[in-house]
Write a protein that binds this DNA or RNA. Structure first.
Lengths: 133, 133
DNA sequence: AGTGCAAGCGGGTATATGCCCGCGACCTGA
DNA sequence: TCAGGTCGCGGGCATATACCCGCTTGCACT
């Protein structure tokens, strides 16, 4: 019984479902929502180090490092060095900018569909509730 | 900007955070919330096949199979065979029942803390919104 | 200049999850 | 009875995520 009311389990279930909505929409571009979102964050901060980016997206540095490496392999991001030789500096590659542009309307579509189904107010409520957790 | 309003990203963030609440509470027992929840579902359905369990928890069969194997290694669950030699039949092991009993109050504690912080109504709202996604 | 501490990473380990492929077990119609 | 189709699984591949350890680079203080 308690499984059906466990906030954690329900959140996970919802997250999987919603992730799939975005993933399906972005599939034509060959990226998933995690990669697309990371790409957007990099664009906003570039040039940025792994550590700073990790702080920004509130993920572990090693996680961001691995995810960034996938983006590099896809040639969407370039990983270079800063003056500080320890730093891995991320910048958006040309292909990355293209994905960002093509992806924007696709992302908007999913976002809109979700808000349409839920209703603007409820969608707003949801985001507030999630932030309060 | 859009990253800060992406339903998917916000859900993921919330899920990671909330998972950690439950994980920390259950840590003394050596299990995480995913394992604990799966254990509860197995108890409710035992003896149950991987496929049936996967349907119940709405996860991929292979995922459940792997997770169940971890529970088996922890000696919380026994994986046997049904009459149908293809079927892997799961049952709760003695240690598993112990974990279920000891974990219940810990789980309740987190659940209560979350609902206290959010307020009963909002917690209820949250669950409804998640279900509508 | 030298030493010692701090910072930035990579990589190992573990879990979570999904999809797909191949294998062995079953079952049903001819 | 046997061939073909179906069912249940394990395991491979890919991503997401965290934590920890060890290496290299920087830097500040002596």
């Amino acid at each position: 019984m308690s499984n059906d009311t466990c906030h954690c389990i329900l959140l996970r279930k919802a997250t999987r479902k919603v992730s799939s909505y975005y993933d399906e929409a972005l599939a034509p571009l060959g990226v998933n929502i995690g990669q697309f979102s990371l790409l957007r964050n990099i664009r906003k901060l570039e040039p940025v180090s792994l550590t700073d980016l990790a702080h920004k997206v509130e993920l572990d540095r090693s996680t961001v490092g691995r995810n960034a490496k996938v983006l590099e392999r896809l040639e969407l991001v370039a990983i270079g060095h800063g003056e500080d030789q320890r730093e891995a500096v991320l910048t958006i590659a040309p292909k990355g900018r293209e994905i960002l542009e093509k992806g924007a309307p696709l992302w908007d579509g999913v976002q809109d569909r979700i808000e349409a189904r839920l209703g603007r107010e409820k969608a707003q409520q949801l985001q507030e509730l999630l932030a309060e957790l």
